[in-house]
Simulated assay, not measured.
Amino acid sequence: MQNLVILAGNVGATPEARTTQGGTKITHFSLATSRPKRDSNGKTIKDDNGRRIEDTEWHRITCFNGVGKTVEQYVDKGMKVMVRGRIHYTRWTDNENIERYGVEIIADEVTFLTRAKSASGGQGGNDSSVDDDDIPF
């Protein structure tokens, strides 16, 4: 059996990166995915203007090393990307001794579906894909 997830959506905010004491680059970003909202008969629900209403879900994406470095350099808020990776569940106890749970997607590959920002911060480049095999560590 395999833990595999593929998501395509819009980046919610500029990715945040950090490096661990051991030198591992970790980059996080949020990804919004949407689907049409349906009534009990399966029919798409529309608003007063005739536009379909959508349910949006937010996903926490975590990238390591080469993928994380590329995401930090070229991904920006609003870009459309496709993420291929795995679901990772976490459990911890907070400062008030309450057990908490979380879920994130560990990205193996991020494909740009819209133009990436250039390393200097402007728009540019072509649609591209990056995975950990493409970048030396």
Rank of each mutant, 00 (worst) to 15 (best):
L4F: 09
L4S: 08
V5R: 05
V5D: 07
I6P: 00
I6H: 09
I6K: 12
I6M: 07
L7F: 05
A8H: 13
A8Y: 02
N10K: 11
G12W: 08
G12Y: 04
A13W: 02
T14H: 08
P15H: 03
A17P: 00
K25S: 12
T27V: 10
T27R: 02
F29T: 01
L31S: 11
A32S: 05
T33S: 14
R38L: 11
D39I: 07
N41R: 13
G42F: 04
I45M: 11
G50C: 12
I53C: 11
E54I: 09
E57P: 04
T62D: 00
N65R: 15
G66C: 06
G66H: 06
G66Y: 05
G68T: 00
G68M: 09
K69R: 14
K69S: 13
T70W: 06
V71W: 03
Q73C: 10
Y74L: 14
K77D: 08
G78P: 11
M79E: 02
K80V: 15
M82Q: 15
V83R: 13
V83K: 04
R84M: 14
R84Q: 10
G85D: 10
R86M: 11
I87W: 07
I87D: 04
H88K: 12
T90Q: 06
W92L: 09
T93W: 06
D94P: 00
D94C: 01
N95P: 01
N95M: 07
N95L: 05
Y101F: 14
Y101W: 10
G102L: 07
E109K: 06
T111N: 06
F112P: 08
F112H: 09
F112K: 05
T114P: 12
R115E: 09
K117F: 03
S118N: 14
A119R: 10
D127Q: 14
S129P: 04
D132P: 00
D133I: 01
D134F: 12
P136W: 10
